[in-house]
C-alpha cells in the first residue's frame, strides 16, 4: 500500500513542477529546441533545478541498503550504449520537436488541454504498444549495488 501512495505523491509533485515551470506548454518546450530561432532557455533552468535534488538523492542512495518503503532498489543499467538506445532517443527527439511534448507533459496536459493532449497521448500509447508488439516485452533491468 505504501508504494502506490508514494508513487501518487511523486506523480502529483512531478505534475505540479511541470506546471509551475511552464513545461506543460508545448510552445515553450519547442522554444527551447528552437536554438537557431527565438530560443527560450527556460528548459535549461528546469533541468538545473531537477538535477540538484537528484544528485543529492543518488549520493544518499549509495549509503542505503534498501529503499525506505520497498524491499530492494530496482534500477536500470547505466551501460552499455547500443544501437537501440541511440535510435530510440533519436526518434523520440524528432517526435519531441514536432509536438513539443515528451511523456510527462503530455500526460499532465490531459488536465489542461484534453482535446489536444488526448490525441497526442493516445498516439504515444499506440507507439509504446507498437514497440511491445515488434520487440516483445523485455526486461532490461539489473539490480545495482546497494
Amino acid at each position: 500500500m505504501t508504494r502506490p501512495l508514494v508513487a501518487l505523491v511523486s506523480g502529483l509533485l512531478f505534475g505540479a513542477g511541470l506546471a509551475v515551470s511552464g513545461m506543460v506548454d508545448p510552445t515553450r518546450v519547442r522554444g527551447f529546441l528552437d536554438l537557431f530561432g527565438r530560443w527560450d532557455p527556460t528548459l535549461a533552468f528546469v533541468m538545473a533545478g531537477a538535477l540538484l535534488p537528484m544528485v543529492l538523492a543518488w549520493a544518499i542512495q549509495q549509503r542505503m541498503a534498501r529503499p525506505i518503503a520497498a524491499p530492494s532498489f530496482d534500477l536500470p543499467s547505466t551501460r552499455p550504449v547500443d544501437g537501440r538506445l541511440v535510435a530510440g532517443a533519436a526518434l523520440f527527439g524528432v517526435g519531441w520537436g514536432l509536438a513539443g511534448l515528451c511523456p510527462g507533459p503530455a500526460l499532465a496536459g490531459l488536465a489542461l488541454e484534453p482535446s489536444l493532449a488526448g490525441p497526442a497521448v493516445a498516439a504515444m500509447c499506440s507507439g509504446m504498444a507498437l514497440h511491445a508488439l515488434v520487440h516483445g516485452p523485455r526486461a532490461r533491468r539489473v539490480a545495482t549495488r546497494p
Binding site: 538506445l85 530510440g88 517526435g95 511523456p103 504515444m124 500509447c125 499506440s126 507507439g127 504498444a129
Partner: peptide
Amino acid sequence: GGLLVGYGTRLG
C-alpha cells in the same frame, strides 16, 4: 509526434 515519442522512448 506522439507516435514517435511513444515508440522512441520505449526503444531508447
